[in-house]
Design a binder for these strands. Structure first.
Lengths: 265, 265
DNA sequence: ACCACAGCTTTCACTGAATGAAAGCCGAGG
DNA sequence: CCTCGGCTTTCATTCAGTGAAAGCTGTGGT
């Protein structure tokens, strides 16, 4: 039980936050300590400080939950709420026109994170959650984000085993590589029943000042889907958003004059 | 600003997060250190750890921003996204019926935090931001949250000076006290031009297992508003949500899954 | 009523993670 | 070429953090 190096106090605090997942949003102290890999008294002390600040909250049942204060701070993430605020009107337009599910996602490491979704009441049910993660190689948004990701990221994804969700999921690295090339060629991605056997999605990239920063998609029932008809719609939405990003991400912070003009459109 | 002993590492980490505000979502190291009240090397080291984990992100310009990983964790807050997920369908109903702004807020200490809003394109513009804070004594949602807050909270708010936003803002503690009693009597709150001179809001409480946990409101142009007609609508929405909360907040203590030793991805 | 137990909280002597002054580094501007 | 502001790294010192163990509290069993 020697204290392994690299176990800073900060890392312990972050491990406590990491213990919470969508499946387990409320934890007892003991669960929290075990998941964070910390001795109980340590977890207790750190958690108490987090509660005092509002990063965690403690219910009447003694369980810890993520606190509103952390949600507030998290809402300042440019790639989170910032992006959402920008995209929501366009997503709503897309929804009004199609009455299908609209999704917005960004890449985080080797996975994607859903930033927002509009779930049509009569649309095909999707199992995604705002704030939830998913693999890059199956969904429409994932294929777009992967296709335009740095080569290094692509290689890492292609090197790892590709999980199979349905019989149509692409799990062969060679096929996936061809698929990504095709996505780059046509400028949009189609995932036909690669996640569930009833749904199909069409996705397009959203470009920021340095490459593709997000992806937007429509998810529709596979049997009433016409990818070729949907693609222009989604692509147009992606382009509108790319433009909006370009204009809104100009920084005007007093002293720093624009340092680099390295926009890669 | 002296290095007072009693400053825990955790508090420093949290101070770093606290440095970010809606008005300043991107900070240089120097700004960050100054706002957090930390020496530069300390801020640098802690910030580096936060970046490594994803709580912060560092742009090409060297500035720090809130990271997506923190947004993800924050999205697990029951009073944040949890509440939003539950409320959104009802909020949309309210929007469809009225085509006015719909707002959802909870109390955090002596202020309120907006959890979600639906802003009608043709509705009166509101200056609220999801994740933003506001005083309790002026808005419709604020009056509801204050009226049903613990006596101790009410006293604290009444004791402090009440900021004036318009000539109709209630700033006299006695009047505010009467107003709150009226809110409790009728079960909804009306804020008539108490925030801006063009808007009026009608709000109703949302009750959880222990008292009022949130408030929902409609914000409409003051000249085409009929509070008495809107109140039943908003109250009905509040009641539906109260019921939904009651059923969904039943906890299943659950068994513990396999021993996870999840390293940070 | 009593005991057994599980989960939480506090204590206390010890230790290494954190600290900040100072020195080094880098890039922009003169 | 030199200066300046902002960032990064070093190093000896020390105080916040630590965990084993003891104490507490509420719950369920007999």
């Amino acid at each position: 039980m020697d204290a392994q190096p690299g176990r800073s106090v900060t890392s312990k605090v972050l491990a406590l936050l990491d213990a919470f997942t969508p499946a387990t949003p409320a934890l007892t102290l003991t669960e929290l300590a075990r998941r964070a890999g910390l001795p109980l008294p340590t977890a207790h002390r750190r958690a108490a400080e987090l509660v005092a600040w509002g990063a965690l909250e403690r219910g009447d049942d003694g369980r810890y939950r993520i606190g509103l204060r952390l949600w507030e701070v998290g809402s300042l993430a440019p790639r989170g709420l910032g992006l959402r605020e920008l995209a929501l009107p366009i997503m709503e337009d897309l929804y009004e026109v199609t009455h299908e599910n609209v999704q917005l996602a960004v890449r985080q490491g080797l996975e994607l994170v859903f930033i927002e979704r509009i779930a049509g009441r009569h649309a095909v049910p999707v199992l995604t959650r705002v704030g939830g993660r998913f693999a890059l190689h199956a969904t429409g948004v994932g294929l777009v984000l992967l296709a335009y990701a740095p080569a290094e990221v692509q290689e890492q994804v292609l090197a790892a085993p590709l999980e199979r969700y349905t019989e149509l999921t692409i799990t062969d690295p060679r096929r996936l590589r061809r698929c990504l090339a095709e996505v780059r060629r046509v400028g949009y991605a189609v995932s036909d029943r690669q996640v569930t056997m009833d749904a199909l999605s069409v996705a397009a990239p959203i470009r920021g000042s340095d490459g593709v920063v997000a992806a937007i998609s429509l998810v529709v029932a596979h049997d009433r889907a016409d990818p070729l008809a949907l693609a222009p719609l989604v692509q147009a939405a992606g382009r509108v958003l790319s433009r909006a990003l370009g204009t809104s991400y100009r920084r005007s912070p007093g002293r720093v004059p624009s340092p680099t003009r390295s926009e890669t459109q």
